[in-house]
């Protein structure tokens, strides 16, 4: 079987990511390690958003809230000297799940632009809640005294270990997404994106499936938050700010909405461009903005959609021209 270009992109991307710690140690630039980790953590966030946005048609403008909740649970636990990852992590994922049930149940009553606005409003509410949490640093945020502790299983204060943990978790999330979207459940959420009236008519009560997808995506974004807290050793309300949610949307669009590996590529390119361009000028968005517009106009399936289309011009790419 000849691998598709998407498969090749995945193989190449992960091979490069696997080599980053080696390159960092050879060149003696530890910053590469830091950069690679941040890319992969945000890639997990973008992957999770793509599940609901790309496949489910639910454009959430508040997805970063779950990254923030995941991070805050870790931070607050550490503040109260609960440092065991075996407690912190399940607790953080559970919290994200609970909030996702509530936020999803409210916002899925609406569609289209109202859905966008409600997810935005709910996330901003949590952002201001974070700002007002004086006990946990308020506006200034909360430094993490020590990373999640896994009883000698893995030492997250060792930066390379943390790197490879993130690497493995990103692969795991990609695999979960792949299984999910091809499963019966995945067909239902894609059907609901495509034609909700028809889904109702053939007998699907779509709300419960969409809500479940929203919760899965929220929990996965929570994982990104847990990792982000350990990565930056710091938690602050900015993680939940609407511009962070916007960044996730841009990553998904950039890489290719509704393609499996698109968000990973999108996150990588986003962070790389941000680094490279902000080195050139303080107003790096002035260059990034037009670039994004070009991608959206001329590669509507994102960077990956662009590749797939060149591979087989006759076949219409999935989700590419919706």
């Amino acid at each position: 079987m000849i691998p598709t270009r998407e498969t090749m992109v995945v193989i190449i991307t992960f091979s490069l990511l696997a080599l980053v710690p080696v390159i960092a140690s050879i060149t003696d630039v530890p910053f590469y390690l830091d950069l690679g980790r941040r890319m992969m953590i945000l890639a997990i966030g973008a992957l999770s958003l793509n599940l609901i946005m790309g496949y489910g048609g639910m454009i959430s403008f508040g997805h970063a809230v779950f990254v923030g909740i995941g991070a805050y649970v870790v931070g607050i636990c550490a503040e109260h000297e609960v440092v065991s990852g075996f407690i912190q992590w399940p607790l953080a994922l559970l919290a994200c799940g609970i909030f996702a049930v509530i936020f999803g149940a409210i916002s899925l009553r609406t569609r289209g632009v109202y859905f966008i606005m409600i997810t935005l409003a709910l996330a901003q509410m949590m952002y201001f809640l974070g700002v007002s949490l004086d006990r946990y640093g308020g506006d200034d945020g909360l430094p993490l005294a020590e990373p999640s502790y896994f009883s000698g299983l893995i030492d997250l204060s060792e930066k390379t270990s943390l790197y490879y943990l993130v690497f493995v978790l990103l692969l795991l999330c990609l695999w979960i997404c792949k299984r999910l979207i091809n499963s019966r459940f995945g067909m239902v959420i894609q059907g609901a994106r495509s034609n909700e009236a028809r889904m109702q008519a053939i007998g699907f009560p779509v709300f419960r499936y969409q809500l479940t997808a929203f919760v899965i995506a929220g929990v996965m974004a929570g994982l990104a938050g847990i990792l982000l807290a350990n990565h930056t050793e710091f938690v602050n309300p900015d993680m939940m700010h609407w511009t962070r949610s916007g960044d996730l949307i841009i990553m998904v669009l950039l890489g290719g909405m509704g393609s499996l590996a698109g968000p990973i590529v999108g996150a990588l390119v986003f962070i790389l461009l941000e680094e490279a361009l902000s080195g050139v000028t303080e107003y790096w968005q002035l260059i990034f903005g037009p670039f994004l517009i070009l991608v959206v106009l001329f590669a509507r399936g994102g960077l990956l959609g662009f590749l797939e289309k060149r591979q087989s011009p006759k076949k219409t790419s999935e989700g590419g021209d919706d």
Binding site: R179, R184, F185, M187, V188, M199, G203, F204
Partner: peptide, 21 residues
């Protein structure tokens, strides 16, 4: 197949590829 699926129990099945069923 999606119409068939709608009448074949619930769809909280997350792992197996529907197209192989």
């Amino acid at each position: 197949a999606l119409a068939v699926q709608a009448h074949d129990g619930h769809s909280f099945r997350f792992w197996r590829a529907a197209r192989d069923e």
